[in-house]
Design a protein around this nucleic acid. Structure first.
Lengths: 191, 191
DNA sequence: GACGTGATGTCAGTTGCAGACATCACGGTA
DNA sequence: TACCGTGATGTCTGCAACTGACATCACGTC
């Protein structure tokens, strides 16, 4: 007889998303999430540093694809060209099959300030990691940070558009368009 | 005999900053902050929605100066020119006399994830307000959001530089330089 | 001089989280 | 076959972050 069902973490994450979506984040206790999959509150907090983290755990792969994109850029690429590569790689991380799941998850996040804060913090951490990768390529400051943060901004805007109702384009396509808009922004200012 | 000393909120904010700076954020309870100025924990939470907010309360004035800057831009200004005006106005909100206080406050924030999250959330709220102001001027999406977020990024980088040890330039001067770097970023990419 | 008001105090309760310690299937080792 | 270490879990306990309900009482007003 098995002592524990496998995949405790994944079951907790799935249950949490469902409960948050139906009852709301504050109305769902960590104990309820745990009990709904046959575990205890204490175990919940062993898997996730805090209640919010259950929605954000496991983004290292996403960050990794972002950094892989940085590495894939040619040596002599400009900062913004490097960001373009990173965005292309990162956008590929979200194929269209994930759209409805992403939509549900984001609708939960958008409804609660506490979750928005965590999301912003994760995005900021990603930007920091990218800016370090840019500096490792010899790009100085503040260009590296500026480019990295701009990349994160572009991704955020594109992602929000990707999960909007009625949107049918793929995330890479949208990302590319938004990046073009960023280029236009400053070009127009220069004219 | 007066029933309460005036300025409860300000006293709480000052005491909180000092205690956070000396003991650390998690090691300081809301009750301790309140008692250090002769109040109770319950009163603390009547003035601030949560423990973190004591460090962030009262930023409407800063947001206001940002929006005033948007309004001060000429009608036919490009999005980035509008942002330049907004940044100039916002940077003026932090004269050099505030530098050491800002430095202390920021050092506390930088030491604690929970406070960083709140700061990012406030900055994001500012960017949202600015993007709405841009849309009200007839600027479309995603240009408005892109410009507003870029402005927030520039301000954040400039502010971090302003409070760095040894930095002597004024915040408006630094902000202007960082904004130029943002322009260079995309110009180089276009060449 | 009575009266409403607003900032505060008091008290009790829920929830998020963490330390300390026990449990016990499983996999290896003698 | 008997033993042992390990890791994921449960149990118990306690603190701190908040919150609702209700009491207090200086102050200004009528």
């Amino acid at each position: 007889m098995v002592r524990w069902e496998p995949g405790a973490r994944e079951r907790l994450q799935a249950a949490a998303l469902e409960l948050f979506a139906t009852r709301g984040f504050e109305q769902t206790t960590a104990a309820e999430i745990a009990e709904s999959v046959g575990l205890t509150e204490r175990t919940f907090f062993r898997h996730f540093a805090d209640k919010r983290e259950v929605l954000f755990y496991g983004q290292e792969l996403f960050l990794g694809s972002f950094l892989d994109g940085v590495d894939s850029a040619p040596r002599d690429a400009s900062p913004l060209e490097v960001i373009a590569c990173a965005l292309h790689a990162a956008a590929g991380f979200f194929p269209d099959e994930r759209r409805s799941h992403s939509r549900l998850r984001q609708s939960v996040i958008d409804r609660h300030h506490a979750l928005q804060e965590r999301e912003l913090h994760k995005l900021a951490g990603l930007a920091t990691a990218v800016s370090e990768a840019l500096r490792a390529r010899g790009i100085g400051e503040p260009a590296a940070t500026l480019a990295a943060e701009s990349g994160a901004t572009v991704f955020g805007i594109a992602f929000a558009q990707w999960i909007r109702d009625g949107e049918t384009r793929s995330l890479p396509a949208i990302t590319s368009d938004v990046l073009d808009e960023l280029r236009n922004l400053t070009v127009v200012a220069e004219s």
